[in-house]
């Protein structure tokens, strides 16, 4: 066994042990055929390919083959929601506070958040016209710009949107990275359509004082968006579930984190109790709830996969799909 083969075998550990025993030699043999005689190291793309293949096989062994398509569906819904919010906030950013209030601004905009929102609008456009790698790069850049806003604000001493506005956008952005490369045209134009609708809505509301609501954490605006997103994905889950397609269920589970972060105001209000018929949570409660959602939400998917595996693995007793042997 040469060094390259040893390294391939190390990467092959991404696959479940049973599958490795059945198919490992064949997969490694094909890698070595493709690699040629002079190679010593697997390429990054090969490592990623083995990682993806291993994840797929582990999900298959757990009877969760619909998980990846489900997360891709969640990616499209997340990107559409992020684009809608960005379209809305771009107009809200132009609603400057009255000069006499003495509130710091970022040039002609309320805050440096305008840069991130523009990044999301560009990402929505790129997804419509150039799906695949360019789209993923554009989404990645928008996500990094959003995540960097707090640090830029501190370093440059410029105002930023509230963390409770930025956090859901980051969660939506992470999920949006999973958007499918081969989307049909109608699905590809969804984000840019949503951004336009968000912009029109913001313009129609045209509230001179909207900067106040923005700076207040989007407490009034974000929860309905989160609730609509949850309803849409639940309807999809029911519709697809009726065709014995579990993608919608996985998509709903994947979207719980951004939905929770969009609804932090309501969730924290429920924790603190209702006052005057509307949630009036304290800031520490909102931060605590946001942290709890951000930590617990992403753990739900692996927990569901593990539970599914424990409750019954339809493929465990089945023969190897290729060689027909029973494991």
């Amino acid at each position: 066994m040469n060094e390259l083969e040893r390294r391939y075998r190390r990467l092959l550990r991404a696959y479940p042990p049973d599958y490795r025993r059945e198919r490992g030699d064949e997969i490694i043999g094909t890698y070595l055929d493709v690699a040629g005689p002079d190679r010593r190291w697997p390429s990054l793309a090969e490592a990623a390919d083995l990682g993806r293949g291993g994840l797929r096989q582990r999900l298959r062994a757990a009877g969760a083959t619909d998980l990846i398509p489900g997360v891709r569906l969640a990616g499209l819904l997340a990107l559409t929601t992020a684009a809608f919010l960005a379209g809305f906030w771009v107009f809200a950013e132009q609603q400057l506070p009255p000069a006499e209030a003495g509130v710091p601004v970022f040039g002609p905009f309320v805050s440096v958040g305008i840069v991130a929102w523009c990044g999301w609008l560009i990402a929505a456009l790129v997804v419509a016209v150039a799906p695949g790698r360019p789209a993923r790069v554009a989404i990645g850049v928008a996500l990094l710009m959003t995540a960097a806003v707090p640090a830029v604000s501190v370093l440059a001493g410029v105002p930023r949107p509230p963390l409770l506005v930025l956090a859901p956008m980051v969660a939506l952005g992470v999920l949006a990275l999973a958007v499918d490369d081969g989307l049909p045209v109608l699905a590809r134009v969804l984000p840019v359509t949503a951004a336009t609708v968000g912009g029109f809505l913001s313009y129609a509301m045209g509230v001179g004082a909207y900067w106040g609501a923005y700076r207040g954490g989007g407490g009034e605006f974000q929860p309905p968006i989160g609730t609509v997103l949850l309803l849409v994905v639940l309807l999809l889950a029911i519709g697809l579930g009726m065709r014995r397609d579990a993608r919608g269920g996985w998509a709903a589970m994947a979207l719980l984190t951004p939905v929770g972060l969009l609804n932090v105001h309501l969730l924290a209000g429920a924790v603190d109790g209702l006052a005057s018929g509307a949630p009036r949570p304290t800031y520490p409660t909102m931060v605590g709830v946001a942290l709890a959602v951000a930590l617990l939400g992403p753990a739900l998917l692996p927990a569901a996969v593990a539970l599914r595996r424990r409750l019954g693995t339809p493929s465990a007793a089945a023969p190897c799909p290729t060689c027909g042997r029973h494991r």
Partner: peptide, 30 residues
């Protein structure tokens, strides 16, 4: 890439579109 190919072959085999024909060992590779 091989990882992608074998994932696709597994799916196609599961769906009954592809079958195993035979096995050979060439230069020690299965």
């Amino acid at each position: 890439r091989p990882g992608t190919l074998y994932g696709a072959l597994d799916r196609l085999t599961d769906a009954g579109l592809v079958e195993l024909d035979r096995e050979e060992t060439v230069d020690g590779r299965l």
